[in-house]
Nucleic acid binder design. Sequence first.
DNA 1: GTAGCTGCAAACCGTTTGCACGTGA
DNA 2: TCACGTGCAAACGGTTTGCAGCTAC
Lengths: 147, 147
Amino acid sequence: MITNKEKDTYRNTKQRQKILDLLIKCDSHPTADWIYRKLKKKFRNLSLGTVYRNLRILKEKGQIWELDFGTGFSRFDAMVHSHYHFICSTCQKIYDIKIPPMKGLDDKVIQMTGFRILSHRLVFFGLCDVCKLKKTKNNKNVINHAT
Amino acid sequence: MITNKEKDTYRNTKQRQKILDLLIKCDSHPTADWIYRKLKKKFRNLSLGTVYRNLRILKEKGQIWELDFGTGFSRFDAMVHSHYHFICSTCQKIYDIKIPPMKGLDDKVIQMTGFRILSHRLVFFGLCDVCKLKKTKNNKNVINHAT
DNA sequence: GTAGCTGCAAACCGTTTGCACGTGA
DNA sequence: TCACGTGCAAACGGTTTGCAGCTAC
């Protein structure tokens, strides 16, 4: 089985560079469409298909991550060093959680399973500050609001 | 903000019961379509829309989980007690990882952020036994194969 | 020169939804 | 009784893809 990842004959195109630049610059986790609309302003005839194709290539090259939190669409992230995420179950905002990555976890699972573990992804769910405050004000009887 | 979760006037229908039974019985993580095709055999005029609607309701009632691993479609799981997952980056098979759930993690993030943390989800990526073996046999020069 | 890339638009496909009818409580 | 649920089919929307022309190397 040969994966695209092994290909290394990628060209340097303006479009791809702009997409990567944007992802590095902004510290949020944009969707493909957001990236498209943002770049479209300067790059008048950019197409959404190109954005998607390049996001896939950048992912294959290991320069970005694709994050899927079950919201129905992907988000992309250029912070390729390991970090974790928090999603507010109410406002859906995504925060980076800067716990030092737990390499020991991988080792634990390697021992248990014998599999080769390459990485892990850890996502916390709950209520962010703003929503927590709103909640206690407006609706004191609601206790559980997990996704 | 009122969520569907607060609703408790659900009826007991044959369809919903069958879907839950199936999810409890099978220890894999089926897709909506798999559930539909499985139940369709006995339940001749079951519709896919009904399966989706009931999966959403069961999720709202907290009886099942919806798992989204970025494969483009959701998987469902009736093991509602906390557990973790492993996905083989090559064959895409999903395994349950039976590490005791780390409640301490939530507390750590609560301290860091002040957010209310309700749960977390931990997914490991790598190569399962079978694919690991195939890989070392067929393609010794390929080192990295992370998703 | 040419393999890879782009813009465009249509196709794809998992999921949702509107509607008329059915059914559990 | 009647609000909730169902089957059916069409719509939705994020993503992919076929194609002809373009461009990095």
